[in-house]
Amino acid sequence: MSASATDTLVLLLERAESERDAAARALHAASAQAEAARSQHGQLAGYRQEYQQRWTQQFTRAATMDIVACYQSFGQRLDQAVDTQGHVASHADQRQVRARDALRQAELRVAALRQLIARRQAEAAKVAQRREQRAADEFAARAHLRRTAHA
């Protein structure tokens, strides 16, 4: 394998490794965002449940219509916030899956380039070994001819 072909493959490998590293960082960031979104969704859902329990206890006592209206209004906004955060968490999970797939593809490219470089180096080594063997055989044949010519 020529030096320029080797250099080209090595440059391609370095670029693929750089892309793989960037994909790994992106996956890490996407995982952190997904975890944060799921955590926030869980916290909001937990708060909504506590709020409903607290107001259920409050309604066992006397409550005015204004208080009931406030409870319902806030409860609806809280439900909307929980639903919205659920969508945010779902989208974050999807981004994490896409980032994981991108990393997997980048790792496959790196592995393929490494394998190609190794195969090309092995081929070059075989060619060099055959060349050396031919040179050694020619040298031995010439030496034998010289010995037989002098004898």
Rank of each mutant, 00 (worst) to 15 (best):
A16P: 03
L108P: 00
T8W: 01
T148P: 02
R134W: 10
T8E: 10
A140C: 07
Q43C: 06
G86I: 05
D79P: 01
E35Y: 03
A34I: 04
L11M: 12
E19G: 04
E123T: 05
E138M: 11
E35N: 13
R95A: 14
L78A: 05
L116F: 02
Q129Y: 05
E19L: 13
R20Q: 14
F59A: 12
D83M: 08
E14S: 14
R15V: 11
S4Q: 09
L11R: 15
A124V: 02
A92W: 01
H87V: 11
A143E: 14
D93L: 09
T56P: 01
H150I: 04
I117P: 02
Y51M: 11
Q133M: 14
A135L: 12
A26N: 05
Q96Y: 00
V88G: 00
Y47H: 06
S2Q: 06
E107C: 04
A102R: 04
A62K: 12
R142T: 10
A81F: 00
Q49I: 03
A29W: 06
L27A: 05
R147I: 06
A128I: 03
L44I: 05
A32C: 07
H144N: 14
Q129F: 05
R100F: 00
R38C: 08
T64E: 08
R119D: 14
R98M: 13
A22H: 09
G42S: 10
L12W: 03
Q58A: 15
V10H: 10
Q96R: 15
E132Y: 02
R61W: 09
L12I: 01
R38V: 09
R131V: 06
V127W: 07
A128W: 02
T148Q: 13
L108T: 07
H28F: 03
G46Y: 03
A92P: 04
A111F: 03
G86L: 04
R38F: 06
I67F: 10
Q105A: 15
A23S: 08
E50I: 00
A92S: 14
E132A: 13
Q53P: 00
Y47E: 08
A5Y: 06
A143W: 09
A26F: 02
F139Q: 11
D7L: 10
Q105P: 00
R142I: 07
A135K: 11
G75S: 10
S39T: 09
A122W: 00
R15K: 15
E107V: 00
G42A: 13
W55T: 08
R48Q: 14
M65E: 15
R20L: 03
T56E: 15
A135S: 13
R114Y: 03
A24G: 07
L27I: 00
R15S: 12
A81P: 01
G86C: 06
E138K: 09
A3F: 10
A89H: 02
L27T: 03
R61P: 04
K126W: 05
A149N: 07
M65V: 10
H41E: 12
Q115K: 10
V88C: 03
A135C: 11
H87S: 12
R95C: 11
A22I: 08
Q80F: 04
R131D: 11
S18Q: 15
A136M: 10
A112E: 10
R114H: 04
S31Y: 02
R20D: 05
R120W: 01
